[in-house]
Design a protein around this nucleic acid. Structure first.
Lengths: 336, 336
DNA sequence: ACGAGTAATTGGAACGTTCTAATAAACACA
DNA sequence: TGTGTTTATTAGAACGTTCCAATTACTCGT
């Protein structure tokens, strides 16, 4: 089934069929109906590979996500997808599971497939030249949420530093002086920024930074539980924790309950990201909201702009704001 | 940058380059090195569209998922992805957000792109002819988790009926007689099967089925909260609930706590799916484990078999088993 | 040194589309 | 009726790969 078959069946030339397929205004309405009829009759399927061979522009965009099993990134992906859909692009999602090798494979596959552009949440340990070939070829690449340093590609990331700072200031204002920073790997961009804001706030308040209180680990529930255990075992244990992300915070909440401690009363917990589940945790989690949807939307818009020829690679920073719920004890304070 | 450029640079013919690209044993090791060197030097990128044009076989498989924001499906997708990866295929994920129109677009896009095969978790209200063109073209399609009736495509689904039955029997054994079935839409395959098992167990135990206790709603947290509210408002309120899925169950747990009721003590809750968070809920959720990974693996294997020429479309049913934790009160019973 | 046999390489057609430039048809206007 | 202009249509080359059949380069036994 090719354009030629359709052409024969409709009594026109393949060129005309091609014009109809791309809904060109050049064909007469009557001819168009004829061709469309033939397409339906024969059950024709467009071959986008052949089309891409001739015309450079493809309608396929790729989203390369470091961890789809993490609800935050899944939400981000779904948000981005929606934008592209509206713009007539077909977004495909690929998961890298935080594996740079896997990420390289995925990027290569997308490139071979001829994507129009890419949104990437880079995996941990992404080498700085991971996108080099892509950008050299003029394929728009936008990093979202994370960025690898040294990479010369656009990026839209949340204001991690400010978020860490705000959260820490809030805990300081509640009277805490021994505040831990739990979870996340030290060698990631996000950890550096978030813990950087935390340090900054502590120093600005004249409270020293105790390196023992910065306990890294996997950015998941286990990381939270383990981090809490190590923090509480310290000779001078903390009374509050800022967590690398919400999932870590969930682990901390669970760990506290296992020890008979009440989060928000015996120990203050603050998360980062504001995933949908944060509001539903018990107690509801105080956290730094990153607004994944807006961030994804901006990343997608930036990519579309690049696709349409705007060559300036943006370096966007997304607003964050602290959402005070109960896990930090702010509500309880007034009650007491 | 094409094979011809590489050929020129390496001093061989384009045919030889093509053989190297497909790592054919026909080329001499020395020549291969020469060509690979040229590929590196020139930064050549394979054009899979052009290749697909000539050879029918593509290495791209599609996964069409109804709701990526639901952790259960995200986990399933990640599991499937892993299988394909190992088999040398490049899996792309597309989300349909439970929208049949969107699903149709996505399926069309994948078909145009020339996928080797598809794994589909069909969206709600998928018309029975959604895969007709695909299967007529000989593209392997495997439905996972759900199946649309009337569609003549392979499927691997969990034993929903048996799961519903086991869970209900467990609640009956704990002494409950008024058991609600909460959440999920009545017109879906999964709801019919799961509530069917529930009815079956009730009838087998000589306990009548009260239609008022089957309360449908969205298969998310809200659906759980709303369902619980309506169930408790009933003149003869239930003492236990089997939920359509875990996320609904989380909503029910939250709703109970809001009312000052303790899940597992004042009201028994059982979920369905066993997502990773189920174990970490408070109290840990008793649920019917579906083993998304095994199911995804089977679906992927089935697809690969079809790709390799096995034409018999399987109708697989995956094992389920009840995981008893605390939300059903089974643990507390002994204590009391 | 020769032919048979195998190993390695190659030119050109083919895949299904779009693009370009040319042609044909329809129309307006003097 | 002829000319210019717009509107529709079209043939054929091109895109970058793989396949086929043919060719050339080796190896071995006699």
């Amino acid at each position: 089934m090719t354009v030629i078959d359709i052409a024969r069946h409709a009594g026109v030339s393949k060129s005309t069929v091609s014009l109809v397929l791309r809904s060109s205004p050049l064909v007469k309405a009557e001819t168009r109906r004829l061709v469309e009829r033939a397409i339906d009759d024969l059950g024709y399927v467009y071959n986008r590979g052949a089309a891409n061979l001739r015309q450079a522009r493809s309608n396929m965009v790729g989203m390369v996500i470091n961890d789809l099993a993490n609800p935050f990134f899944a939400e981000l992906a779904v948000g981005i997808e929606r934008v592209f859909q509206g713009a007539g692009y077909v977004p495909f999602i690929a998961n890298t599971a935080e594996n740079p090798m896997r990420q390289a494979e995925v990027l290569r596959a997308l490139r071979e497939q001829g994507v129009a552009g890419l949104i990437v949440c880079p995996s941990r340990n992404t080498p700085s030249d991971a996108f080099k070939g892509l950008v050299a070829d003029g394929v728009p690449v936008v990093q979202a949420m994370r960025k690898v340093d040294g990479a010369r590609a656009a990026s839209i990331v949340p204001d991690n530093r400010r978020g860490g700072q705000q959260a820490t200031e809030h805990l300081l204002a509640l009277g805490h002086r021994r505040i831990a920073f739990l979870g996340g790997y030290r060698d990631t961009f996000a950890h550096a920024e978030r813990s950087g804001g935390y340090r900054q706030a502590l120093e600005a308040a004249g409270v020293g930074v105790d390196p023992a209180l910065i306990i890294d680990g996997p950015p998941n529930r286990d990381g939270g539980e383990i981090g809490l255990a190590r923090a509480l075992a310290l000779p001078n244990a903390p009374t509050a924790a800022l967590c690398f992300n919400d999932v870590v915070a969930f682990g901390v909440l669970a760990g506290l309950r296992q020890r008979g401690l009440t989060p928000g009363v015996d120990f203050a917990v603050v998360g980062f990201d504001d995933v949908t589940d944060a509001r539903h945790a018990s107690p509801p989690l105080t956290t730094v909201a990153v607004d994944s949807f807006a961030l994804g939307e901006r990343a997608a818009q930036a990519m579309l702009r690049m696709v349409h020829g705007d060559a300036t690679p943006v370096e966007g920073v997304g607003d964050v704001h602290l959402v005070v719920r109960e896990s930090c004890g702010a509500g309880m304070e007034q009650a007491a």
